[in-house]
């Protein structure tokens, strides 16, 4: 039997806007993936530890507070340090376009902005997650 794609949806930072994270989590689940949602205000350490324990294929980060430039790269850095080399890290939220190239350079594979259909996230994960 083919292994289901496992995704961790994490909310780093101090903001509590979880509408997007939860809609995406539910859409991924409805698309047949296994979804773990961390809950609010998780530190990068907590997110990476959960990813490790849950053996996920991807980590999706949602943030609307403007702290993405600090927190997204921090998650990537810690994940790689812990040996999560193949885990795909993507994000979404209120993120100025000019930050996107820098985030990608830091190892965030994709950044989804408001108005993205959930379908696009599903397709992205199906394409990128390598069978392990």
């Amino acid at each position: 039997m083919e292994r289901k794609i496992r995704v961790l949806i994490g909310k780093p930072g101090l903001d509590g806007h979880d509408r997007g994270a939860k809609v995406v989590a539910r859409a991924l689940r409805d698309a047949g993936m296994e979804v773990i949602y961390t809950g609010l205000r998780q530190t990068p350490e907590q997110i990476v530890n959960t990813a490790l324990q849950e053996d996920v294929d991807a980590i999706g980060l949602s943030i609307l507070s403007g702290a993405h430039m600090h927190l997204f790269p921090e998650v990537v850095k810690l994940a790689r340090e812990k040996g999560l080399d193949d885990v795909i890290i993507f994000g979404g939220g209120i993120i100025p376009e000019k930050d996107i190239p820098k985030l990608k350079e830091a190892g965030v594979m994709e950044v989804f902005l408001p108005g993205t259909p959930t379908d696009a996230v599903v397709k992205f994960l199906r394409e990128k997650v390598k069978r392990r």
Partner: peptide, 22 residues
């Protein structure tokens, strides 16, 4: 900004990246 909203000072570890942002 969110640190004030959450009752956290600007020099707290939790405030990193958030100071004056929103």
């Amino acid at each position: 900004h969110l640190p004030t909203i959450m009752g956290v000072d600007s020099d707290s570890q939790l405030a990193k990246g958030e100071v004056g942002k929103c």
